[in-house]
Simulated assay, not measured.
Amino acid sequence: MTEYQSLLVEQQGHIAHIRINRPQKINAMDAPFWDEMVRAFDWVDQTDSVRVAVISGEGKHFSAGIDLSLLAQAASGMGSDIGRNAERIRRNILRLQKAFNAVDYCRKPVIAAIHGYCIGGAIDLISACDMRYASRDAVFSIKEIDMGMAADVGTLQRLPHLIGDGIMRELAYTGRNFDAAEALRMGLVNQVYDDHGALLEEVMQLAHTIAGKSPVAIRGTKEMIRFARDHSVEDGLNYIASWNASMLQSEDLKLAMQAHMTKKNPEFKD
């Protein structure tokens, strides 16, 4: 498997576990992180034996967001021409966005297991995941406003679909901290667990359950949910009709129905 500087990537059965691995820096997202996320999720997407991905953080925290040294480097590289500076900044932002677009567009479900700090860029990351679970000590914040900038790698675009427009605006405008209990109430996370150990145990069990389903059916379900987010109901219905015109011919359908009737657990091909 590819070597990584900022991530730990391993496959456990049908589950890919991707851990942000800079605990001495509160898992801040440094320069290698962004390219490594693209590579890691390309591997997840292309590896048929991987059916679900879990993202977590090493050490005491999930992630403190973007490493501020990246912003300092960007500022130091500016020249005297405004147009060229702007084009350079825009190109770099689009490159960073690819890291979390890779999560959003991954064919496999992606689950975030969040403990400790989940700040700034970490909110962008979990917003791109399919589901989010937290331990009781989790602390969240859309911190970019306190850095004098607007969040630019996905939070403002994806979060309103998860928690609603009004509460998203409050959090984005104020940058205030909120805890796991509030995150659960607003629907940002699906469940809260007592500690990091219980969190990972339950998330891995959930991933195992999903991995036991038809990969073809999971792929179609994720694609339809993601498509519906950005399209009308009519467009979504038309798309699923076209999609299932082929996918309902899969052997998985016959296997699942037979297993249901015989009350046995089906075993699907990768």
Rank of each mutant, 00 (worst) to 15 (best):
A75V: 11
I93T: 11
G79Y: 09
R95M: 13
D35V: 02
A99T: 09
W43A: 07
R84W: 03
V44E: 04
R107S: 14
R95F: 13
R88I: 10
V44I: 10
W43P: 00
S49M: 06
K60H: 09
H61F: 09
R95D: 14
I55F: 09
D42S: 14
D104E: 14
P109I: 04
K60V: 10
K60C: 03
G59W: 09
R84Y: 04
G83N: 14
D48N: 05
V103Q: 03
D35R: 06
G79W: 10
K108C: 14
M78I: 15
Y105I: 01
P32H: 07
A74C: 09
G77M: 08
E87Q: 15
V50R: 03
F33Y: 14
I66Q: 02
S69L: 13
D104R: 14
A86Y: 12
P32F: 11
K98V: 00
F41R: 00
S80P: 01
G83K: 15
F33P: 00
D67G: 01
V38D: 02
D67A: 13
Y105W: 13
L96K: 14
V38R: 08
G57R: 05
R39N: 07
I93L: 08
R90G: 09
G65E: 02
G65A: 10
D42I: 06
G65C: 01
W34N: 01
R95A: 11
F33H: 02
D48T: 07
D67F: 11
K98N: 06
R95S: 13
K108D: 03
Q73R: 13
G79N: 06
